[in-house]
Design a binder for these strands. Structure first.
Length: 156
DNA sequence: GCCAACGTTGGC
DNA sequence: GCCAACGTTGGC
């Protein structure tokens, strides 16, 4: 199967790209949206590429890439009563929520701001840029991936 | 801090 | 199964 591409949003005050660099591998837990869950469980494969997006805190930008090192498996924080994301309806025998593991791959010399993405005609269809899109795990086309990575590689 | 957009919940 | 109310997301 060809490599596929995704975009993960994270609020950097909750979990930043630097946190990912520090941790090496991160469990992408706590996703509690069914559409994003389906993507995590069914679609994301080891080796896929992830654009790491910082939301909610300026500068809003894609700050680097990550690589998926483990495909979807049950999110154990759902049945951890101490977790912020605990969900008593999800159990080890019948998990509701899924996660993947990712590893930092490439920190852009130049983070790519949301404002810049909006100016690029070839990115007009990007899920991130659709009005009202709140998906925290979303697909990215190969063309979109290549365009964003090219911008991030530029210096200055 | 505001609020539009969206997903979820729950009464009926 | 509808839909109003509510909570959350996330750009502005």
């Amino acid at each position: 199967m060809p490599r596929r591409y995704w975009l993960f949003k994270s609020e950097p005050n909750a979990y930043s790209y630097d946190d990912l660099l520090r941790d090496g591998v991160a469990e992408w837990d706590g996703v509690r949206n069914f559409q994003a869950r389906n993507t995590l469980r069914d679609d994301i494969q080891e080796g896929d590429g992830v654009l790491f997006y910082h939301s909610n805190e300026k500068p809003l930008s894609v700050i680097g890439t990550a690589i998926v090192v483990r495909s979807g498996y049950p999110d154990h924080t759902a049945w951890d009563p101490g977790s912020d994301h605990s969900d008593p309806k999800s159990t080890p025998d019948n998990p509701t929520w899924y996660m993947v593991d990712i590893k930092a791959e490439y920190r852009f010399p130049t983070p790519v701001p949301l404002e810049q993405l909006k100016t690029m005609p070839e990115l007009a269809e990007m899920v991130l840029l659709q009005k009202g899109s709140r998906l925290s795990v979303q697909p990215v086309t190969e063309l979109e991936w290549n365009a964003v990575v090219a911008l991030g590689k530029q210096s200055g």
